[in-house]
Each structure stands twice: as C-alpha cells, then as structure tokens.
C-alpha cells in the first residue's frame, strides 16, 4: 500500500491554471491578429514572431541569470510578446521589436520579480518607450495597400488633430484605418474581449468604465464621442491592457475606478494635450495609482465590524 499523502484541506482543485488562462488570452487575440494580417499585409507575421520569440527568449535568459525557476511554461511571456506586437506599426524594424521586448520582459517584468509582481503593464511601457525614444516609429501605412516603404498615412487621431478628412465609422469599426497592428479593428478586439469575459478570464468592469467614461467626457466636451472610442488604441487598451491582472486593482470596485481614470486621462490628453493619442499614457498612469485605488476600494468583509483602512 502507498504512503498516504497528508495535506491541509481543500483536497480538490479546479483545472484552471496560469498557463491555461494565458492560452485563453492568446486565443482571444487571434481575431485581431488575423484582421491585422489582412489589413497590413504579410509583414505582420514575422514582426509578431520576432516580438513573441524575443519575449520568450528574454524571459528564459533572465530567469536563468537570476537563478530562478524557468517560467516560460506559464505562457505569460508569449502574451506580452503578442500584445507588444499589437502595439507596433507594421513598418517597425525588427530590431525595434527586440528592444521593445527587452524593455517589457527584462526591465518592467523580471526586474520587479516576474509574473504578478510588475507594477506597470510590460507591453504598454514598451510601446511608450519606443514611441518616445524613436519618434520615427510613428510611421503608419495606408491600410490594405501593403506598401511598407513609400506611403505614409496617419492614424485617425492624427488626422483629427490636423483637421483633415476622417474615415467612416464603419471603416474604423472594421479596422480599415492607419494604426498599430492590433488596435485598428474594434470588432475583432470586441470579440476577443467578450470571449475572455464569457470565460470569466477578465471582468468587464474596467473596459466598460474606460470606454464609457471616455465616451461621456468626449460628448460633454463637444468631441465626436463615437469617433473617440473607435479611434486609436481604446479597444485594445480597454479589453487587453486595462484588464491585466498584476497591474490593475483586484476588486470589482477598484476595476471600475481604474477604468474611469483611464477614460478621463485619455480624454484629457486627446482633448487638451499635444499628443494625438493618450491610451497608453492613461493606462501606465493608472497602473502607478493601482495600489492606492486598492487601498481605497477595499471590500468590507461579511460581518466585519467596520471597514478597516490604512491610517495616513
């Protein structure tokens, strides 16, 4: 007879594991990736592969150097790579994808302790580093023309800032506009987001309050609200970045506040700032505020005598 395993209860567990959650996220990004290949052409494939591959490699090397457990099996590095690719323009050089992966995995994620410990979203931070550090990256091609050299188009938000003619709502919803790989097609992102919500991987609290507050504030300010939520990285940010586990609040209330903050900051940057796009900055800023939001939105436990808050 075997020796009996003695362990504390519970003795049963469910089958959802970290790597299966990450796989679901990858699945949910597939529609957006597919549409991206259609809109921006074949270069999307190697560019995405470089991002995913270098993220996994950096994760492996980093863990190895730090003498920690190998964590590439949890698939989170692959998710980061995929999200980074979604944030790059199709013309981005491969070396830049590698630099972005380095920033995301090594600097933002592993130096802070790896999965679950980073305070900022790796892909968003990498996008911002590349955007600010290499301004030439803001070189957008016309959709469906696959001409990576000559034609420089602008994203709808840049067009709007310049007061030029805008694409139709339908084109924007379907993604036939300039922009980064994964952000243009709201439909594909919506499908992915709803899939994740249906599988209970993400909560819709943050995406809804993000998109909702951006809509309302733009409307009040006299901007075209529908246009504002369809343009730029709002859907990508709301469904895939503002729902990141490690860098957003853990409670429902906190998630609502987080989304609200993202919406407001995005609106402020777009409406008053000189940058055409504010989604990345808004998410990064809210990432930094997350510990404070968590502190202020703590659940009141069932039967607790009072809500306990940190003094000072």
């Amino acid at each position: 007879m075997n020796k009996l395993i003695v362990s504390p209860s519970p003795h049963d567990e469910n089958f959802v594991k970290t790597h299966s959650i990450m796989l679901q996220v990858i699945m949910a990004l597939m529609p957006a990736l597919g549409v991206s290949i259609y809109i921006f052409g074949p270069r999307v494939v190697p560019l995405t592969a470089v991002c995913v591959g270098s993220c996994i490699l950096f994760e492996y090397v980093c863990r190895r150097l730090m003498k920690r457990d190998n964590t590439i099996g949890d698939m989170s590095a692959a998710v980061t790579g995929l999200l980074l690719a979604m944030n790059l323009p199709v013309t981005a050089p491969y070396w830049m994808a590698v630099v972005g992966s380095f920033v995301a995995i090594v600097i933002v994620k592993q130096l802070f302790g790896g999965i679950g410990q980073n305070f900022a979203n790796p892909a968003i931070t990498a996008r911002i580093v590349l955007m600010v550090g290499f301004p030439t990256i803001n070189h957008w091609i016309k959709p469906l023309e696959y001409d990576y050299d000559a034609v420089s188009s602008a994203t709808p938000l840049v067009l709007a800032k310049k007061g030029e003619e805008l694409p139709s709502y339908l084109d924007m919803f379907l993604g036939k506009t300039g922009g980064s790989l994964g952000e243009t097609c709201a439909l594909a992102l919506l499908l992915g987001g709803l899939y994740l919500a249906a599988r209970k991987i993400i909560s819709l609290a943050a995406p809804l309050s993000f998109i909702g507050s951006l809509f309302i504030f733009s409307w009040i300010a006299g901007d075209d609200p529908l246009y504002q939520i369809l343009a730029g990285g709002v859907f990508l940010g709301a469904f895939f970045m503002a729902t990141d586990y490690a860098t957003t609040p853990i409670t429902q209330k906190g998630k609502v506040v987080f989304g609200l903050g993202c919406g407001i900051i995005t609106f402020v940057i777009r409406h008053f700032g000189s940058y055409p796009e504010g989604v990345s900055f808004s998410i990064l800023l809210m990432n930094v505020l997350t510990p404070y939001i968590e502190e202020l939105t703590r659940n009141k436990p069932f039967g607790a005598k009072e809500v306990q808050k940190n003094e000072g």
Binding site: T18, S76, I115, A246, N299, P301, F302
Partner: peptide
C-alpha cells in the same frame, strides 16, 4: 505552487469578501 498572478479569483469566490 507558482507566483500569484493577481487574477482575483480568490476575491471573486470568498464568501466572507476577504482578499
């Protein structure tokens, strides 16, 4: 056992509303 990914599932199920 691996690192907490802060997915919030424990918060979602706790009948006592703990974290």
């Amino acid at each position: 056992t691996t690192s907490c990914i802060r997915c919030g599932r424990c918060v979602r199920v706790c009948p006592m509303e703990l974290v």
